[in-house]
């Protein structure tokens, strides 16, 4: 299935958002997620099933002003 991961085309067979994060190596990482513009809390990730063309954002802390 093709999705958009952080603005770039990405092919995955992960079924859920939680699975996608784990496969990317983010299982223990400090991240936050959104799907199609809406925030998805960490606890809700296992219940969020991915669909083709979903737009996934995975973000982490960064320098800011």
């Amino acid at each position: 299935m093709n999705i958009l991961l952080n603005g770039e085309a990405y092919a995955t067979d992960a079924k859920t958002l939680d699975e996608l994060c784990a496969r990317l190596g983010f299982a223990e990482a400090k991240i936050a997620t959104a799907v199609n513009g809406n925030f998805v809390a960490a606890m809700a990730r296992p219940a969020v099933e991915l669909a083709p063309s979903d737009e996934i954002e995975i973000v982490a802390p960064r320098q800011g002003g």
Partner: peptide, 22 residues
């Protein structure tokens, strides 16, 4: 101190190191 959040790359994991510093 002000901080932001940005897209995290699975390869670089930039944010993880920054968080430790903060």
């Amino acid at each position: 101190v002000t901080v932001s959040l940005r897209r995290e790359s699975a390869r670089a994991l930039t944010g993880q190191g920054f968080w430790a510093l903060i």
